[in-house]
Design a protein around this nucleic acid. Structure first.
Lengths: 201, 201
DNA sequence: CAGGATCCAATTGTGGATCCGG
DNA sequence: CCGGATCCACAATTGGATCCTG
């Protein structure tokens, strides 16, 4: 907390380069290393023994996130992934450690870690998340995936996640005809993460 | 309810002209006549015997107001007007009859009256309104009127109300020097009137 | 390709300016 | 000038697109 990203990178011997932009997911990976998380793509949790997910979340000077937070990919091929109880969304959001980091300044080395927020959804949050999840997945399983867009969902939304918006996925539409569609992911809306960062120290 | 503005204007023998724009406050006046309100500038209430204020509020196709709602002028010269208990804001908002009207279509004659909503603020609404009022008036009475802008106020805000933004009013600043400033009015934010229209039939 | 996220053009929201009638 | 409100340019938000690493 209060440590600069440059300092952390130095201590780890990590290299990031000077670019102010195109750094995208690099800080997330950096902090995973810094905190000794498992890393690696397939792992369900960053800290498998604890079942805890680590999220790096950039905030403005008032501690507020400007952007939505990625949760996981929407997997269309696995039946389990489309059922709330066994879904990846539910597993990942059960226990989350949010580490908030400055979105500014341009020189990323001077950005400071602003806070650490351990969150477990309360009953109300679970209900809203579940409703959002089931609304989105409902469209998929009834073949109406083209009606699925980022306007749905109070707190959890679904957005495209593919280079050039390329439709690289085949799914059946309402008539059972296979159509090409774009890969998508689940995201938490900024208004929701703002409230989490405020309410959970 | 469900009556068109053209129909109402015809029944009253009122003339409004064909313009789609520059009609601004004309419908408010039209509906005051239609409902037999007192009219005339000085009157505190539209229905003096009932102490009820009439507000015409344009809504989109989902019944939601796009604009803020004018309450009254911020009078800087009257001590009574600057005290919540005796203020015009409090008097006017005690009992309000909102008449919602289509904001569309371009031909105003086809716009329909969408609903009638009788509102008296509950305890929570009163507390918020009072806090917003006292924050704004506090700036005025301590000579910091130039710090007063439309960003203040959860539900009740203060905005300029003058042709060409002309500073035609003299008020003392923090040092007691008279400075020119713009006339202002109190307005209800759209998020607040949206909730009122939903909760009060 | 999945996981780490941010970028940015387009849409939405709204603060300050403006319009009309009496 | 006051009461009836709306207009609209610019700020804030965000949906869809994109970028990098292992």
């Amino acid at each position: 907390m209060g440590h600069g990203l440059g300092e952390i990178a130095l201590a780890l011997g990590a290299t990031i380069g000077d670019h102010t932009t195109h750094t995208k997911g690099k800080f997330g990976v950096l902090l995973e290393h810094a905190l000794g998380a498992a890393g690696g793509s397939g792992a369900v949790h960053d800290f498998p023994e604890l079942g805890v997910e680590l999220k790096t979340i950039p905030v403005d000077t008032r501690g507020k996130p400007a952007e939505s937070t990625y949760v996981c990919t929407l997997h269309l091929l696995s039946a389990e992934a489309l059922v709330w109880e066994t879904s990846w969304v539910k597993q990942k959001l059960s226990r989350v450690l949010f580490v908030s980091v400055d979105a500014e300044p341009a020189d990323w080395r001077e950005r400071l870690v602003r806070g650490v927020h351990y969150w477990e959804p309360d009953a109300e949050a679970w209900a809203t998340l579940r409703a959002d999840f089931e609304e989105a997945v409902g469209l998929v399983t009834t073949g109406r995936i083209e009606a699925l867009n980022a306007r749905l969902g109070q707190v959890l939304q679904v957005r495209p996640k593919a280079k050039d918006g390329k439709k690289t996925l085949l799914v059946p539409d309402a008539e059972g005809t296979l159509i090409a569609t774009v890969p998508r992911g689940f995201y938490l809306r900024p208004a929701f993460t703002t409230e989490i960062l405020q309410r959970y120290r």
